[in-house]
């Protein structure tokens, strides 16, 4: 790293007396965050506070709003659809995140092995779904998972299994949606996990091999603990994504069948399209609380001892 930038070069081109006065160290961070803060406050914080305030009103988009206190919140907390949407997201989380971590880790470990050929090809292949426009993906899914004509059931029939109503039964719609999400985002998680793997020093394995540890043992006692924080990062990231998931069920199932794929994100969107902006806003802040609680939980659970 020291070869990248030598202090001499720095001094050579940038005179010492020139910079110090006009950007003191105490002021510098404020200057650095300023461009970001300007945009952030104007287009994130302001609308967020607006929304927070909206959540205590019955505003429907026109005219004056009426302050309703915690009404929207208590309505949601006593509403089956709201809890149902959270439950749907929780089940989807269970279907997605553990599978994604295991599968992602497996693929990352394989891709981290120099002996595997065509690694560039695999990296691209796993990331192609990630870059495919979602609106096209929705159409693909509807056709591929059709009960009678879809490719998936065609394959099942080949091995003697019966047709499955992938998108038309409430038992299977969630797994199908989970599969779409896995398909679309696992490539990204693989890359993140790969980054964790690559930061492990090869010498650790050499030491372990000399000590006679089997490779399976090495995986579980060396690799997994060392990538724990990377795994945690992925888990938190995907928890946010799963609970906010809106576009996928919106374009593929529209929440059906039987609202079994009405995710937390889709449910709040439905409030908004119904014109019930206050309830939609309240719903989203309840979601923030849920997601924050979960994040804290995972962080604690997966934290390394240090």
């Amino acid at each position: 790293m020291s070869t990248l930038v030598g202090p001499e070069r720095v001094r050579g081109s940038q005179g010492r007396p020139l910079l110090r006065p006009w950007l003191p160290r105490k002021v510098a961070p404020y200057v650095f965050v300023l461009p970001f803060v300007a945009i952030f406050v104007a287009f994130s914080v302001y609308p967020m506070l607006f929304t927070l305030r909206l959540s205590f009103t019955d505003w429907r988009g026109s005219g004056a709003a009426r302050w309703v206190g915690w009404d929207n919140y208590t309505y949601l907390l006593g509403n089956d659809m709201f809890w149902g949407s959270l439950a749907n997201s929780a089940v989807l989380w269970l279907m997605i995140v553990p599978v994604q971590v295991v599968l992602g880790l497996l693929v990352a470990v394989l891709l981290n092995n120099a002996k595997i050929r065509m690694r560039s090809f695999y990296r691209i292949a796993f990331l192609v779904p990630f870059v495919t426009p979602l609106v096209a993906v929705a159409q693909i899914w509807v056709v591929v998972f059709d009960q009678e004509f879809g490719a998936v059931n065609g394959l099942l029939n080949l091995v003697g299994l019966p047709d499955v109503g992938w998108l038309t039964t409430s038992e299977w719609a969630k797994p199908t949606l989970a599969l779409l999400f896995l398909w679309k985002t696992t490539g990204f998680i693989v890359i993140i996990l790969l980054s964790g793997l690559q930061s492990i020093d090869a010498s650790v394995y050499e030491a372990a091999s000399i000590d006679g540890a089997s490779r399976t043992r090495q995986l579980w006692s060396i690799t997994v603990p060392l990538v724990r924080r990377t795994v945690m990062f992925s888990v938190v990231l995907q928890t946010l994504a799963v609970f906010q998931m809106f576009a996928e069920p919106f374009v593929v199932t529209d929440g059906g069948p039987y609202n079994s794929t009405t995710t937390a994100g889709l449910h709040l969107y439905e409030n908004i399209t119904r014109g019930d902006l206050g309830t939609g806003a309240a719903n989203s802040f309840l979601l923030v609380v849920v997601v924050m609680g979960l994040s804290l939980l995972f962080v604690r659970f997966l934290r390394t001892e240090d």
């Binding site: 952030f40 809106f246 806003a281 924050m292």
Partner: peptide, 13 residues
């Protein structure tokens, strides 16, 4: 916090 807030709700504001 903004990372945790579903962006969809910010659209109308």
């Amino acid at each position: 916090i903004t990372l945790m807030l579903p962006t969809i709700v910010l659209i109308i504001p």
